[in-house]
Each structure stands twice: as structure tokens, then as C-alpha cells.
Nucleic acid binder design. Structure first.
Length: 289
RNA sequence: GGAGGGGUAGCGAAGAGGCUAAACGCGGUAGACUGUAAAUCUAUUCCUUAGGGUUCGACAGUUCGAAUCUGUCCCCCUCCA
């Protein structure tokens, strides 16, 4: 069985995964875009290094340096290799990056490509980018909208290097589930409760030394920017005092949790939703063996 | 006690007779999503059975018409005593 555990941040996914993995003696594979980085610990709520070293069945955590950015294609490749390797065993997938999970389990195809230059099309205005994409791929342009600069540029870059529009390219990789033994288990705690837990968690991150970790990161990797877009890190660059920074992190995390729910609710079918981890655990362990 | 300034939607804040259910920001809610995804972007936010109904500290006025003008009252802030 492949148990895919999804839900917003601070919903209890990690605990649930740990319990289910223990019960089934399963391999655990992460699908969280930021827990892959070695230098990011406190702010990502990653399992501790001690825990990971004692649990060799945990995969795709803490293995990548922040100056060597990871991406969805690499994730898909690494993840699928692991799924193949442990095909005979129970597997637990946990994480918060819905798109990574989709790319792993569904029929998404990624072509080899050069990294997009940082300043690609930076001379064009949003309107010009939008007009350009409308000509090439009207459907995608309409989905992206005229203000979503980052994704407009990406769509145009795809066309430039692959000579096909995003819509054309995605045709061969529709939303077909590639594995037939996947059980989706979703955690959806009461919103107020979730927000309380998020607030509390951020407090604990600060107590645990998040500030030191961020300072160290800034010092060691002054040029890294991808990793520092993460919530719990980017807020330290706003020139705010510590208390305001903390409140901003709480707010951004709450907003993020909401976005995660939207993605999981709408991008995955056949999810068994639970309000708390006990019900979810009960479901997983009594229904499957 | 004296002199000023102010009370506007969940919060901050514009508006100084009709174009105002009230700009804008924040927060909230809903949504989009195929290579930066903890990213990026969109919609909505007084109530509503969608026809309307109640709003700008309270009450009473002026006016065809008031958040905007007048009076009284209640709060808040600053300065002088």
C-alpha cells in the first residue's frame, strides 16, 4: 500500500505518518519542498537530524544543500526511484507540497531543460508578456491571468525551449494516477484549532533558535534566494523588529495552510478526510494490513 | 477647570452636502495551479429570501437630499492649570 498523507501545515501529518509507518513497518518518503534542505531545520518543522539518523526508513529529507536548489523534476525522479525500490513494502508519503505529490503519483512528464536565466524576459511588462502568451497558448494564458508575472514568464520559456506550448506538452501527461494501491488520507482540522496550533508552533520555533539558524544561513549563503523564500525565513529580510517578524510568520503560515487546503481539496479526488490524527490512524490501520 | 484635536465597516484610514454601502491598506473567506509551489496569482468581504434593508459615537434639527451643516449629550487624545 502507498499511504499518501496530506493536509495543511501543523495538522499533525508527521505524527500520523510516524505512527502509520511504525504500524506497517513502512518506508517514509517526504514530499515537502523545503524539508529536503540540510541547512533548514527549525523553520521547516523537519524531523530532527537525530531522529532521521535513527530512522533509515525516512527518505528525501535533509539531503540537499541550499545553494544547490531542488525542483519538481528532480523530486519526481528521486521519488519514483524510491517507489520502485520499495515496491513490495508499505510506503507512507508525507509532506505539504501538493504539487510534488501530484508529480510523483500522477502521469506528469518533465523534459530535460536548461535552467531558466534569472533575468529571462525581465525587460517586458506584464501586459506584453500576457499578449505574447495569448498568441502562443490562449488557454494557458487565461488560466494564468495577466498579472501572474512569474508564471507568464515560465510559460513563455517553455515554449521557447521545447517549441511547444504548455497546453500541448501537458496533454500527454494528464491526471492519471500511475499506481493502483494508493490510499489518500487527508487531515483537515477545525480552522480555528489549526490557526492556534500554527501560532504556537511559531512561538516554539523562535524558542528553539530560529533566529540563529536564519542568521547563519544569511552569513554562509548570502547569494541563495530560493531557499530563503520559505516562510519562517523570508520574513527576516523585511527590516521588522523581532516581534513583528514573528507575527508576520504566523500570518503567512496561516495563509499558507489555507492555500494548501484549497490545493488538496481540489487537485486530489478520493481523499479520505479526517479531523484528527487518531481517526485517521484508526482508519488506516484497521482497513489495511 | 481652560484650550485644541478626534470618534467612519473586524482593524487602520480617506471622504467635508447629491456621482457614497462609503476610496485605499490590513485582516478574514473562497478560488487558480505541471520545473522558484512554504512560490506566484484571482475573486470576495454591512445584512439580504437579491427586490431590497439598515449604516459613519448618540439623540434632535436644517435641507428636496446629511458620514459631510447646526444644537445638545456621551466617550477618547494632546497641551495649559
Amino acid at each position: 500500500m502507498i499511504f499518501a498523507i496530506l493536509g495543511p501545515t501543523a495538522s499533525g501529518k508527521s505524527d500520523l505518518a510516524e505512527n502509520i509507518a511504525k504500524h506497517f513497518n513502512a518506508e517514509v518518503i517526504n514530499f515537502d519542498a523545503y524539508q529536503v534542505y540540510i541547512e533548514m531545520n527549525k523553520g521547516t518543522a523537519k524531523p530532527t537530524k537525530e531522529f532521521l539518523s535513527e530512522h533509515p526508513n525516512y527518505h528525501l529529507y535533509d539531503f540537499r544543500h541550499v545553494d544547490d536548489p531542488y525542483n519538481i523534476m528532480l523530486y519526481q525522479k528521486d521519488g519514483r526511484e524510491l517507489l520502485k525500490k520499495y515496491a513490495g513494502k508499505h510506503i507512507v508519503l508525507v509532506g505539504g507540497t501538493g504539487l510534488y505529490l501530484k508529480a510523483l503519483l500522477f502521469d506528469f512528464k518533465f523534459l530535460e531543460e536548461e535552467k531558466m536565466p534569472e533575468d529571462y524576459l525581465s525587460n517586458l511588462t506584464n501586459e506584453e508578456l500576457y499578449e505574447e502568451l495569448l498568441k502562443i497558448d490562449e488557454a494557458d494564458a487565461k488560466i494564468i491571468g495577466p498579472h501572474n508575472r512569474k508564471r507568464l514568464i515560465r510559460a513563455l520559456y517553455i515554449y521557447k525551449i521545447h517549441n511547444k506550448s504548455k497546453t500541448e506538452l501537458n496533454e500527454n501527461g494528464k491526471s492519471n494516477l500511475l499506481y493502483d494501491d494508493v490510499v489518500f488520507i487527508g487531515l483537515n482540522p477545525d480552522r480555528n484549532l489549526l490557526y492556534e496550533r500554527i501560532n504556537k508552533r511559531v512561538e516554539i520555533m523562535f524558542e528553539d533558535g530560529l533566529v540563529d539558524e536564519v542568521n547563519e544561513l544569511k552569513e554562509k549563503f548570502p547569494k541563495v534566494n530560493q531557499a530563503l523564500q520559505a516562510i519562517g525565513y523570508k520574513e527576516f529580510f523585511n527590516g521588522l523588529d523581532l516581534e513583528s517578524t514573528k507575527e508576520l510568520i504566523k500570518k503567512n503560515t496561516r495563509n499558507y495552510a489555507k492555500r494548501q487546503m484549497t490545493f488538496f481539496k481540489h487537485q486530489f479526488e478520493d481523499v479520505n478526510w479526517f479531523e484528527n490524527i487518531d481517526e485517521a490512524y484508526e482508519y488506516a490501520t484497521t482497513r489495511y494490513r
